[in-house]
């Protein structure tokens, strides 16, 4: 996942600025990671950043590769211009490989003498480690809902890390995976993406980001508008659907959702969930219909399918695997 947009925000006012930029609280301890959303001034979701605290007033930010210019321009236009905050683009100098799966810890322990135990390397933390001889910033996060680490590294070490992992992974059944697998895996976890589930047209509450928004933490971009929006009431709610009796096609996104022959929403994404063995879709529907068990219909390539609203994150709802 080397294409990720990456940057460092540092300087005496880095913490103050970032706290104003995003709706979530920033990670407090060095080595902690939080998922944070930058809202626009109208309270819609503009950008999503994984933020890691590297040092006092120094943060490492990761966001979608496709949004590099969008996200970095957004940061730089809001940044104070007096030099108290410094922006450093790390995209091209930093590579990323993702290790995920139940045997991820075993694999890491084969290539590193650092401690990857759950006690000493918790979910949502990061550590500087070695992978054989290479320096790596291992971040215990991922977008697929399994035990695992993102290995951020200076780009020139990539092949060393890649080779050592593949070699050590032979006995463990290690296999490479790509973006399409990742999309299927993330849908089973109800993980959202900017551009589909997250958009300036939706408030973070409509997109199910409630636990990442802290309206009482102090002022941030979009807070006032978001509070007004909430008073007025929301028109949408993101739900996870099981689509029944599909044979060969799943939701692709922008599929209309029906209740009693009336359009009540739109699917934002979907894919076959291979761990659940179900066709899964994420969808924006009217809030009064957003109840677990609600029966809806979804149009896939002109055919109507029955669909049922599931609890969020139908795969490993309690995140036991992530935190194992």
């Amino acid at each position: 996942m080397t294409a990720f947009a990456k940057c460092r925000i540092k300087g005496p006012k880095a913490e103050e600025f970032l706290d104003y930029l995003v709706a979530n609280k920033l990670p407090k301890k060095i080595g902690r990671i939080n998922l944070c959303h930058a809202l626009n001034t109208k309270g819609g979701v503009h950008s999503e950043f994984t933020i890691m605290k590297e040092a006092e007033n120094s943060y490492y930010l990761v966001s979608a590769g496709a949004n590099l210019r969008l996200d970095h321009d957004w940061i730089q236009k809001w940044m104070p211009t007096d030099g108290s905050v410094i922006f450093e683009d790390l995209t091209n100098s930093t590579g990323v490989l993702v290790v995920a799966g139940p045997k991820a810890r075993q694999l890491m322990q084969k290539v590193s003498t650092d401690d990857f135990s759950n006690e000493n390397f918790k979910w949502l933390t990061a550590k500087n480690v070695n992978v054989v001889y290479a320096p790596v910033n291992a971040m215990r996060v991922n977008f697929v809902g399994e035990l695992g680490w993102e290995l951020h590294h200076p780009i020139e070490y990539q092949n060393h890390i890649f080779d050592k992992l593949m070699e050590a992974g032979k006995d463990l059944g290690l296999k490479p995976f790509g973006i399409r697998a990742m999309n299927s895996l993330r849908i089973e976890k109800s993980y959202k993406l900017v551009g589909t589930e997250l958009s300036i047209e939706y408030s973070p509450y409509e997109s199910g980001l409630d636990r990442f928004v802290h309206p009482n933490k102090g002022n941030f971009i979009g807070l006032e508008a978001l509070n007004k929006w909430r008073e007025k009431g929301f028109d949408n709610k993101l739900v996870t659907l099981e689509v029944h009796n599909t044979t060969d096609s799943d939701v692709l996104g922008n599929n209309p959702i029906y209740k009693d022959d009336k359009v009540v929403g739109r699917a934002t994404g979907g894919e076959y969930g291979f761990r659940l063995d179900k066709s899964i879709a994420l969808a924006m529907v009217k809030p009064d219909l957003a109840n677990v068990g609600e029966k809806l219909k979804v149009d896939i390539l002109g055919k109507m399918y029955e669909a049922t609203i599931l609890d969020e994150s139908p795969y490993d709802a309690e995140n036991k695997l992530l935190r194992a």
Binding site: A3, G65, A66, P176, F177, G178, I179
Partner: peptide
């Protein structure tokens, strides 16, 4: 066996 797609100029494996 990677089959690549292009995102922001980068070649990324879509699947293997």
């Amino acid at each position: 066996g990677a089959v690549f797609g292009q995102k922001f100029g980068w070649e990324r494996p879509n699947f293997f």
